[in-house]
């Protein structure tokens, strides 16, 4: 169970009925993330801020990419767009064969639910909710039945070495353990991409090392990982690094 759960199985995945999969099969030619000349412009009153200015980026199946840049460089904006939380102002973004252009909020949420697993700096677990229920929540929004949710959630937590902490609340776990619960939550839906935003930012060195080891293990299993960080030491661990400065890749 757990082996298949965490193995990369993009070929075996079936999207919700009705989803157009004509171009979804990832091949060498089709990048999993295909961003071309992407702009993101904010209008704050009379001021116009260009957070991203013509970014192009391709990430292929099985890659481990670090997006590095100082704060204010636009890397968070880029992460929000990759994670389907935000939309580009101009340019195209095709995620696993689906263009985000013209998608409604609900369609964007479905795409996010299917393709993206988020890991945040501040863990962002639901308070007063057990580790098992936290990890099971993304499956709730995919319409998975309760029994299967609990089963898959427990398997994912066990896989991350939290088999003894299934019923603990986030407040009863250490930072490193909470981040591992968050990773289990990102993995449980078997998404195309793990999108990690400063995942070691709130952790002490030892926990940080452990969490990074998890990412390396996932990469070896064939997972696609996009890591956003301002920390060059962390970024250096990724096989491929992309630098962002002033809204452009350098």
């Amino acid at each position: 169970m757990s082996a298949t759960l965490l193995a990369p199985s993009v070929e075996g995945r079936t999207g919700p009925a009705g989803w157009d999969h004509a171009d979804a099969s990832p091949t060498a030619d089709h990048a999993l993330i295909d961003i071309r000349d992407l702009w993101r412009v904010y209008h704050l009153g009379s001021v116009t801020v260009e957070a991203l200015r013509g970014v192009s980026l391709q990430v292929h199946q099985g890659e481990f990419v670090a997006i590095v840049g100082p704060s204010g460089s636009g890397k968070s904006t880029l992460m929000n767009i990759i994670g389907c939380l935000d939309r580009p102002s101009a340019g195209s973004y095709v995620l696993a064969g689906t263009s985000v252009e013209g998608l409604s909020d609900d369609e964007l949420a479905r795409l996010r639910s299917r393709e993206i697993g988020f890991v945040f700096q501040s863990y962002n677990l639901l308070a007063r909710t057990s580790a098992t229920d936290n990890v099971a929540t993304p499956l709730l929004y995919q319409g998975v039945g309760r029994r299967e949710r609990i089963e898959r959630s427990r398997a994912a937590l066990t896989e991350l070495g939290l088999g003894e902490r299934l019923d603990h609340l986030p407040s009863e776990l250490s930072g490193g353990q909470q981040q591992r619960v968050a990773i289990a939550r990102a993995l449980v839906t078997n998404p195309s991409i793990i999108l990690a935003d400063e995942p070691t930012g709130n952790l002490d060195t030892a926990s940080g090392v452990e969490v990074m080891a998890r990412f390396h293990a996932l990469h070896r299993q064939g997972r696609t990982i996009v890591l956003i960080t301002h920390d060059h030491e962390v970024a250096a661990q990724a096989p491929r690094q992309v630098h962002v400065r002033d809204g452009q890749l350098v």
Binding site: D105, A109, F118, L126, T137, P138, Y141
Partner: peptide, 8 residues
Amino acid sequence: IRKAIGAR
């Protein structure tokens, strides 16, 4: 959080 993990 709920929206990020797939809630519409």
